[in-house]
Amino acid sequence: MRIIIPIKQVPETSNVKMDPETGTMVREGVESIINPLDLYSIETGIRLKEKYGGEIIVVSMGPKKAEEALKEAIAMGCDDGVLLTDRFFAGSDTFATSYTISKAIEKLKPFDLILCGERATDGDTAQVGPGIASLLGLPLSTFTSKVEVEDGHIIANRLIEGGYEVLNLPMPALVTVVKEIADPRLPTLTGKLKAKKLEIKQWTAKDIEANPESLGLKGSPTRVVKTFSPKVTREGKVIEVKDENSLNQALDEILELLKEKAVI
């Protein structure tokens, strides 16, 4: 099996700090990591490779620094990496990103499967995976919690509202996965050494024969016109339970609120 896994390098946002004045994220000292949800697509790919053989190519669009993310994926068990890096790519929205990555994947043909993380934790759109599938004319399974391969087909469980849907997709296909699919492994020393030696290919807009009109900010139909800080603080009441009295007070307050909101 030849598997392609598009990944993204994102700022580590679990401890994100916001500048209260400007409402923007404090980028200084913020580490860049593999999009945490891409670890699941990487792990899924490696497990399929272990079972069926083949190779995995990870692809990322971003600055030179994004090479770190590709190397980490290779250290985990992927075989090769391609970095799409060009100033023409800057400012891409989900359309331009889907377009750019799909052009690169065309160049990597043939392949059997594309695996994507559910979404990236910074943009949080979940649109690039389906976008790539659509541009390449591939059948798609999103929110996938299990994949199996059966004579040239993918059997995928999709986690949707109310349960799991089982789909049968012909290959090549694109599958976006959720966290439930597999626990990602840690990179080993052997993997790290292998990744260190490997030269990551760098492709520009020209290399992937992309239409410049569809790239970067210029090729993006959407524009951010304003950003602002959400108001999250609520003037909530806080009751400290110290004894029987305050416990009863707390319970009464909860019950009152439940009645007010017509939950009981």
Binding site: D93, T94, F95, S98, Y99, D124, T125, A126, Q127, V128, G129, P130, G131, A133, S134, L135, L140, T142, F143, R158, L159, I160, E161, S220, P221, T222
Partner: peptide, 20 residues
């Protein structure tokens, strides 16, 4: 899950923008 699958699959073919 339906909207977030159908819309991005459709929007890129229409070459239009989509906000999630």
């Amino acid at each position: 899950t339906q909207g977030r699958t159908l819309m991005p699959y459709t929007a890129v073919r229409l070459r239009t923008g989509l906000t999630a």
